[in-house]
Design a protein around this nucleic acid. Sequence first.
DNA 1: TCTGCATGAAAAA
DNA 2: TTTTCCTGCAGAG
Length: 285
Amino acid sequence: MPEGHTLHRLAREHRRLLRGRVVAATSPQGRFASGAAALDGATLRTAEAHGKHLFHRYRSDAADLTLHVHLGLFGRFTTWQGQAPPPSTGCRLRLATVDDGPPVTIDLAGAAACELLDPDGERRLRARLGPDPLRRGADPDAAYAALRRRRAPLGQALLDQSVIAGVGNVFRAEALFLCGLDPRREARTLTRPEFDALWTTLVGMLRDGLRRGRIVTVTAEDAGRAPGRLATEDARYVYRREGLPCRRCGTPIVAWTLAARRMYACPRCQRTAPPSGGAAAAASA
DNA sequence: TCTGCATGAAAAA
DNA sequence: TTTTCCTGCAGAG
């Protein structure tokens, strides 16, 4: 489930449950044994997310330590308050409070990255990330400038974390649908008004995902009922709906592989052509 | 028990 | 552009 909203939600949860708490850190699976040893007995100062990256900031004796986690496709955190079961065999990192407060245990498994970063390492990592719509001060101009530099298809450019940090496969498909944009168009042909609508849509979707804890893009009007109660497959317009009728026009949704990921779109609702050939394309369609 | 698949991204070729 | 690495789960056999 990890797109940007998931990581911001985890950061918030970890701050709420662990900020100021002393933790015991272990690596039951063993692959983060040395890192866990360094973290053991440290106090969490804060947790934050940038795109799909999560950072825990700890103070241990005199040293400051930063834990960096990227969940990748399979990673997941599991949290217990009170008694926790034994860690699963794949548990890379277990954090468990050892102070007098209420007991909290957080397990991490399947992460693509779980490492301690020094300030320089974090700087290099952050330099590769574009603006994150969920972070204060996110600069849409930087995202637009990056898109205008790319010859790659818009659908591909949107997954590039150096363009906009936090957008994943669900958000890209749904945002492009809602904005009526053809994913195959060259990113650099995007006009400023088109980009502004796309950015606004993404900000809204990410914030909504952060609030709900799940991705629901279908409006109550299009769903015909309260979207909060929709089953996952009914909560989206195009993502994983190949062959099913578009909720707006009834045309079957199409899917293809773009930049090694599945891209979904409505061939009728998403054929906005670049401004130069727009009128002719629309007339012939 | 085995297989395939998943909301990701880096390394290799 | 292809391969590889993370793990857990559902569905098939």
